[in-house]
Nucleic acid binder design. Structure first.
Lengths: 114, 114
DNA sequence: CTCCATATGTAGCGTCACAAAGTATTGCGT
DNA sequence: ACGCAATACTTTGTGACGCTACATATGGAG
């Protein structure tokens, strides 16, 4: 199937699912994991991440349990089976997409290929 | 400067500018160039490309001249100086962004590295 | 004459990520 | 005791973007 150009947006879901693959995480921790794992390149605002998590939960890709740690209520998210499948698909899409974009953006070899 | 998460969308401009870097092109030809250059992975609809070109022209990143070839009117676009600068910036952003996403999406080495 | 490829255009729509503001608790410094 | 930073989550509103669908016009092949 030809890759849909709609993937120009929507990589956020893939990132969140990927972080959750390493184990149960709550929103705040996910944000920190992304920031730490990318040298600060991905520093997402809460207004972006929390709604996205709700979206993913509504979509059945993750589930959550409330837990209380030192008096603070937090929501621990974890991948569902569908979420793991979705993550796998997202990875495929990302690989195709990034390869295509990189190919187009990479300056031509200046025709030195003879 | 930390990469803005807003780059999650907006890579289309970079693609169009990159194609135009190889020389003057009209919309239809750009679409074909993208399709050919990516093995069909990027097959953008006209309703996506033409408005984007208008946007880029309004932004001063490209300019256009009407030409007539075998009775068909077509708009030949070419990069402006600002467009070349923008393309350069887009490449930098893309490199950072794709590296970050790839880092997060790449499955951990399962700690076999000892 | 009809159909396809070439070539451009726009209106309307849905989705998304973001900014901004708010709520509540813990724990540190003073 | 007080204030402030850090932790942790939520919601409203907004703007931009890419897509679908449709409309228009010409040239060439059959």
């Amino acid at each position: 199937m030809p890759m849909r150009p709609e993937v120009l947006k929507g990589h956020l879901d893939a990132l969140l699912l990927a972080v959750l693959e390493t184990g149960s995480q709550h929103g705040y921790a996910i944000i920190e994991a992304l920031r730490a794992g990318t040298d600060g390149a991905l520093d997402l605002p809460t207004g972006t991440v929390y709604p996205a998590l709700h979206r993913l939960e509504r979509a059945g890709l993750i589930t959550s349990d409330w837990e209380t740690v030192t008096g603070r209520r937090r929501r621990a998210y974890r991948l569902t089976t569908a979420g793991k499948r979705a993550l796998h698909e997202h990875r495929t899409v990302w690989n195709e997409f990034s390869a295509a974009v990189t190919a187009v953006l990479t300056p031509r070899p200046t025709a030195a290929t003879t």
